[in-house]
Write a protein that binds this DNA or RNA. Structure first.
Lengths: 187, 187
DNA sequence: CTCAAAGTTTACCGATCGGTACATATTGCG
DNA sequence: CGCAATATGTACCGATCGGTAAACTTTGAG
């Protein structure tokens, strides 16, 4: 049960769950893809739910690390980073493997608010919002909390619309709206 | 094969799919709930996918009718109706049966953009956006198309966040942002 | 080396999946 | 009424679901 092996399984499972969905992906197919046996899989993860939770933990880490770093690379100032989030999202949307937000999918398939998978999805969003709040505070913007929540709405909306792929580039629309809201918070 | 019977099945299936998800709901349980036999069910709907498509058609009709009417009831002017959409959403979020957007769930579980269920979900959003666009045009707002897309982002984001239930009332945040964006379009 | 602990494999479990063949009621038309 | 067409119910299909018992292979300590 070396950690690297386990991580490898989680990484593989992440890709398959992200492409195919959670309920639609059977443990058998995951086992077939990774090459290990089913019993070994169940030694690493007691249940499918445990595996999904591990996948979401990895996804949370990967996504937040990537987004935060990209926001920093794209802008120096805190307020600029808030805006730059939408440029980063635009880059994500353009990637061929983009399939929407994994946590939205997870909370859609496990809807009960008390379900661990649902809670973990909510936690992910809450951590993102907190990061935006801290940036807004550092930028000395008015109503930092409300602004952070509004930017979250734009972000989530953009991801949904980008996934539905019926319109050009929702990241640009979201960015324009974000600029307007940030400007308003400066007054 | 009276239409009323079929509609009754679709209505029942809608509730179950909305509560439990699509893949997580088996045809057997739908059959058990409605009291009819499996063969009769498959006489009305050739496949599960057909049933889901019928469910989404009904949901589209119900939801758009309800939202459009509520927007009209809450505001007389076109620009006011755009804002009132977020009050209507707030009412929806407060209902005990609220479980997020059925079309987001559908497109999450059937991700392939070429899949009929995915396409129908995109169509639903596109029709909503068109309605917002027409209201924005009637209100003689600048950049009506862009504004409509931005309001859609706020709407979708609010539904996602409301479903995750970690924050107070996203409809209020969305409404404030919408007011700011509409005001900006007036200049 | 010995030998037990840990990890892995094969083969399988009952339950449920979407879907159907076939026999039985029910219906509308002459 | 007679009787075919239509709708329904029973019983079942192979495939797959999440998960496991038991045999086998590898490994590390003495």
């Amino acid at each position: 049960m070396r950690p690297s092996k386990r991580d490898e399984l989680v990484q593989k499972a992440l890709q398959t769950f992200y492409r195919n969905g959670f309920h639609a992906t059977g443990m058998d197919s995951l086992v077939a893809e990774t090459g290990i046996s089913k019993t070994s899989m169940y030694k690493h993860f007691r249940t499918k739910e445990d595996l999904i939770l591990a996948v979401l933990r990895l996804r949370d880490e990967q996504f937040r690390n990537w987004l935060y770093r990209r926001m920093e690379e794209l802008a120096g100032e805190s307020s600029g980073q808030l805006i730059a989030m939408f440029d980063a999202l635009g880059e994500w949307f353009a990637k061929p493997e983009f399939r929407g937000c994994m946590f939205v999918k997870a909370s859609s398939e496990f809807q009960d608010a008390s379900h661990p998978i649902h809670k973990q999805s909510a936690d992910h969003k809450q951590m993102l919002e907190k990061h935006l709040y801290e940036l807004a505070t550092k930028a000395q913007l008015n109503e930092a909390a409300g602004l952070a929540r509004q930017l979250m709405l734009l972000k989530e909306g953009a991801i949904i619309i980008a996934h539905l792929r019926y319109t050009e580039n929702p990241a640009i629309d979201a960015k324009k709206a974000a600029v307007a809201l940030v400007e308003k918070s400066r007054m």
